[in-house]
Design a protein around this nucleic acid. Structure first.
Lengths: 251, 251
DNA sequence: CGAACTTCTGAGCGGCCTCTGAGCGGGGTC
DNA sequence: GACCCCGCTCAGAGGCCGCTCAGAAGTTCG
């Protein structure tokens, strides 16, 4: 379909779209301009239409105009708290999905009830992969996104990943991964046959406040190789001076 | 059937629908906007069409328009009491199912008369799993819902749960569970092969006013393991950093 | 009124995960 | 062919996560 061909991510992947093929609309609400900027960029990279707001009042104004499919909402806002905004948003658009951003230690007190409505939350500091993945999950479950691929399952060669069950298999064999390993592999699998630099990987898979060096990426690539490539034809390849690629084995 | 395919819950399960395949219609009547919001979200998550009202007058207005299959009705309302609203509702739609919300120490005698008529009640504070389960039971018994699955029996692998009899068996053996254990297992069984975070579990299985920490979930998971997995091939799995999954053994 | 049960808190502990540092090997370059 | 740099891997420290035990408080039931 023409409209599909025209709506792709910057990475060349087909974008997750609304049922009618138009880009998904997302509103980012955070009072930290740097963070809002990073999030906005990452979501645009997914091929979505994104707008940002710095406080609750602005959020409502933009929401009325944009009628977003999803909202990324900081719980701590300068004027009101995120939960009041949530209620107003639901009046503007009852079926909107919400992904809350919250500080780690504030998690327990008022997050209660949030995931009950099908909404979700992510604790700061977070990785962009995690935010995007959660958002994709929300949209898919709410039926707002067209099922472009075969649901929540990623496949590259004989390697498969079920994001909901957090299950990874290679040639049918189950592979156990730690959280970071899982997210790294997910990033690779969502960008197959594409060289990803260590900087890119750090930016997407590790939290934005991570001060560490690119050395960690090498380390985790080596962990992944031991589990994913173990004794088999390798799928993870090093491109010296450039980064890493995941590709199906050449036949 | 096409209409079935289109009406699913956010979780991907097939929705409990009206006999003609359209979504069940539910009206929520509560003067606490937070509670109404949470209830509305949880019911929408089930794939139902939900509207909310804050008092008796508004409830009647909405009911005349929506003609709901079921009503969740707070007994204490700012303008009138729930029982007066009930009488009016029955004039609008005689076969409507009603689930009352009531304080724990409230008048048991009047409630007793109600449940004789086939309606049901839940005492505050309640868990969302309980409300949804009761509502499903009401609708099913009233013949308003199509039997999508095989009735009130849940099955995952060799684990079965009869929701009405409150009976759980594994490999034919009866398992005795406390109320909280039962609800936790029900939630897991209604979302098999799907990682559920501790926050999700807390939101659905524990009461909305529960201030406790995620630690309780770990504790109850360990209770369940002792009873459900006891000596057998485990079905309850921990996904570090993510949550828990229930899945049938050796797929 | 007591006994059994249920629910939740606190503390301790074991193990997994993450990251640092160091040494080594191999490719590329001069 | 020698050097240098990049990348790989091992070993280990530290922290965090999740599991379990034990007991207190509340509830139900006889």
């Amino acid at each position: 379909m023409l409209v599909d061909a025209m709506n792709t991510t910057r990475s060349g992947r087909p974008a997750l779209t609304r049922p009618d093929g138009t880009p998904l609309r997302v509103l980012v609400v955070d009072d930290d301009p740097d963070l809002a900027e990073v999030l906005t960029g990452a979501l645009r990279y997914e091929g979505w239409e994104v707008r940002a707001a710095g406080d609750g009042a602005a959020a409502l104004t933009v929401a009325r105009e944009l009628l977003p499919d999803a909202v990324i909402l900081d719980v701590m806002l300068p004027d009101t708290d995120g939960f009041a905004v949530l209620r107003s948003l639901h009046q503007v658009k009852p079926d909107v999905c919400v992904l809350f951003l919250t500080a780690r230690d504030a998690v327990e007190d008022r997050i209660a009830g949030i995931t009950a409505g099908g909404d979700d939350y992510v604790t700061k500091p977070f990785s962009l992969e995690e935010v995007v993945a959660r958002l994709r999950g929300l949209l898919r479950r709410a039926g707002m996104a067209r099922q472009q691929e075969d649901g929540p399952r990623l496949t590259v060669g004989d390697l498969t990943m079920d994001e909901e069950a957090r299950e990874v298999t290679r040639a049918g064999e189950l592979i156990e991964l730690s959280p970071t390993e899982f997210e790294l592999l997910r990033f690779l699998m969502r960008n197959p046959r594409r060289v990803l630099s260590k900087a890119q990987i750090l930016d997407r898979v590790w939290s934005y406040d991570f001060g560490g060096r690119a050395h960690v990426v090498e380390l985790y690539i080596s962990y992944l190789r031991k589990k994913v490539d173990a004794g088999r034809e390798p799928m993870i390849h090093t491109v010296r001076g450039a980064g890493y690629v995941l590709k199906p084995v050449a036949r």
